[in-house]
Design a protein around this nucleic acid. Structure first.
Lengths: 265, 265
DNA sequence: GGACCGCAAACTGTTGACAGATGACAGCCC
DNA sequence: GGGCTGTCATCTGTCAACAGTTTGCGGTCC
């Protein structure tokens, strides 16, 4: 009450002024770049032109550089001195490795959930599974995908600490870098959601070991489905011999396409 | 061979010129700051004065800012707009959470090692365990600590991919932020090294599940030993009520001690 | 005709400077 | 005397400019 009285009354719109007051331009640029990368607007391997980005976002190069440095540290871009920054390329091997990490993390969260046995959280998870089942029957892969994301987010929000959640999100982002592929197919939806149900059963039973195993198996299943889908044709050559994620020497993408600005038209 | 011929002949000293040519100032500053933070020269909660750091390192504020942004993204510092950056404070709860993550990761690496059963790697690990045993008998905690680090590094280098290794290193760094405490005591050395031996036995037996369990149990043991040592008296109050890692409002550290530069002496 | 060399443009790395904000101190009013 | 307000110093956020390097293109020599 006292705090509310001290605050200005119009604390309803969190946009505009509050944004400017709390977030720096660099952080906003970083957020925007991350969004662009994850949405595919900046595809993997793409070169990031600092001054072009600065001009596009209406800021100076300083904030852009800071943002890129942050994204570099978090693994979304790689930088080469005097040459530029590139959206990171994730190799198939790295993608599989990330799956393993996510499996372990999901397992931890599931085990913790089985220990806690929170009724409200469990029913929320059950609702998501029901929703996914409906989406599957309706053949709505898009809705299933969104609900699946919600489910895993909820799993981690309830069963893991903030550090683990952040790690899980980061790994998910990196996984997105491995080529945008068809989300889920119908048969995969069925198998995937069955595994969700298995997880919930183990949690409801209060069996941490079983819950952990079920959570790990689910991600391992996703890994298997991902692997069975196979690397795209264009990806195939480079996944075999190269460790990638170093665009300039390795992947045959951007090095050739640089500097097209000189050509007047 | 061809590459060597193309390179300049005096490629013996990797320092000086090569460093400048390949690494940017910002990355070097980041490396130095990370070193200072992990060595304790910049204690947790300490405020980072950009221009002081820039002057101290002999560079401009730009690279320092970029470095700090990178460290912020990797979780070593936290930044508040118009106020500055602070070395992150890791709460006891976060430290325990990090232990869980490391346990899971170590378990993954041990399981993979058991699958591979690489003789050379295994004997190297055995050598490290023998070395730790000797250090323990000699009561040389410092040597034991170093060898222990080597052991876990070797475990991950052999049994995990690059992404996992980087994650493991980052988590280790964050753990270092939780107050510099007495490394290991004699009895802990004994228990710790016994667990090392258990891990190696499971790996040698080619039993991934047992190796994984042993690896996880070892880190869990470390977590238990860490917890039993108890939070230091100075840490105790803040670990209970606060989620920390937000120095300015939460921890009663830097906010008061700021801006002492005005006083002439 | 091919390969080597030099030139120029573009971009990154770095610096210095300016504007805005924050926090503290001193003075003033009640 | 206590609380509040105005002012000031310091620092961060941002920008614009300079310097160095890489790269692509054109010319020239063999």
């Amino acid at each position: 009450m006292e705090d509310a009285a001290a605050e200005p009354a119009q604390a309803e719109a969190p946009s505009a002024l509050d944004i400017v007051r709390t977030r720096s331009l660099a952080s906003l640029v970083a957020q925007e770049l991350e969004r662009m990368i994850l949405s595919g607007a900046l595809p993997a391997g793409e070169r990031l032109n600092e001054q072009a980005l600065a001009a596009r976002l209406g800021v100076s190069r300083g904030p852009v550089r800071e943002a890129v440095r942050g994204l570099e540290r978090s693994g979304l871009v790689v930088a080469v001195r005097n040459q530029g920054s590139y959206v990171r390329t994730v190799s198939a091997a790295e993608a599989l490795e990330i799956y393993d990490l996510r499996a372990a993390i999901t397992g931890l969260a599931c085990a913790e959930l089985a220990r806690r046995r929170d009724a409200a959280g469990l029913s929320a998870l059950r609702g998501l599974v029901r929703g996914m089942d409906a989406a599957r029957r309706a053949g709505d892969a898009r809705a299933y995908y969104a609900l699946n994301l919600d489910f895993h987010d909820a799993l981690l929000r309830q069963g893991a600490g903030p550090r683990t959640q952040r790690l899980h999100a980061d790994l998910g982002n990196e996984l997105h870098l491995f080529r945008r592929r068809a989300l889920v197919e119908a048969e995969n939806m069925r198998a995937s959601n069955a595994e969700h149900a298995t997880i919930l059963r183990a949690i409801a039973a209060g069996d941490p070991a079983a819950a952990r195993a079920a959570g790990e198996a689910h991600i391992a299943g996703g890994k298997r489905r991902f692997r069975d889908t196979g690397p795209d044709k264009t990806e195939q050559e480079e996944t075999d011999h190269a460790g990638t994620h170093d665009p300039p020497p390795g992947a045959g993408g951007p090095r050739r396409a640089r500097r097209r600005a000189r050509d007047p038209g």
